[in-house]
Write a protein that binds this DNA or RNA. Sequence first.
DNA 1: CAATCAATGTTATTATATAACGGATTGGTA
DNA 2: TACCAATCCGTTATATAATAACATTGATTG
Lengths: 137, 137
Amino acid sequence: MKSSEHGALTRNQELVYDALTDAKGPLSAYAILDGLREHGIRAPLQVYRALDKLLEFGLVHRLESLNSFVACSHPECDSRETMVFTICEKCGKVSELADKAIAGQLESLADLDHFALKAATVELRGFCQACQTASTQ
Amino acid sequence: MKSSEHGALTRNQELVYDALTDAKGPLSAYAILDGLREHGIRAPLQVYRALDKLLEFGLVHRLESLNSFVACSHPECDSRETMVFTICEKCGKVSELADKAIAGQLESLADLDHFALKAATVELRGFCQACQTASTQ
DNA sequence: CAATCAATGTTATTATATAACGGATTGGTA
DNA sequence: TACCAATCCGTTATATAATAACATTGATTG
């Protein structure tokens, strides 16, 4: 299990991480909170603090355009890698793709602009395969 | 002036657009609101409604990772084009780049995943040239 | 004129995120 | 063991971002 790579997670971190892996989709911090009330989590800060650590460990990604969070689905994910997310606007499904070519091109573009790149957010919106075939709209 | 391309903007749209072009940098909706109180803008919705239209016209872009908005700096910007933003984490400077190659590669990646791409968010974080030379950190 | 549609103004509310404080726990290390 | 430092924790309060709901205005246009 991935969490073992970073030493044991604390109780709150474990709860939040498990909530995200169980969800198999993005959750807002407050959705996580609601799901964990019966486990003793009562305040937003408990969730946000755990999320901060999980983001730092690379176990979780933040989806900026949704203000929500997903467990990293890429087994070897280094938090510094550039990930590409596809977000289905119909069913909400999110896929996480690692693409070296795009990461490289973003680096090159940044270089051209003399910009020292630290992290990249790439989020694609549209319709997933299932939602395309299910309907024309 | 760009606004002439979409017929006259309404009074509120004009106020919000001018606030963004004057700022020469990203502003949150509430920062815009504060700057326009003396012009009769009193409620968040007045700003958000104007922003919705300006986004639709392609005159303004939204920076998801900052929850803020910038006037489009690209004269021919079609709102459907994929833009790449660099965001300096030191001085806050934002640059807007149009790169066909990256747009194309994102399309290809989406195709591989059978994802019907409608819009892409690409935001790069790091340090701009000025902030690199000014300091090592 | 009547019907319609977009834009407006206002109040209230929801959703997202952080500040500030003190206490508890852990892990070294003198 | 006693101490220190660092991290995590729980809580209350607050800040920031965005939308719901409803009434009104103003400009077409058939």
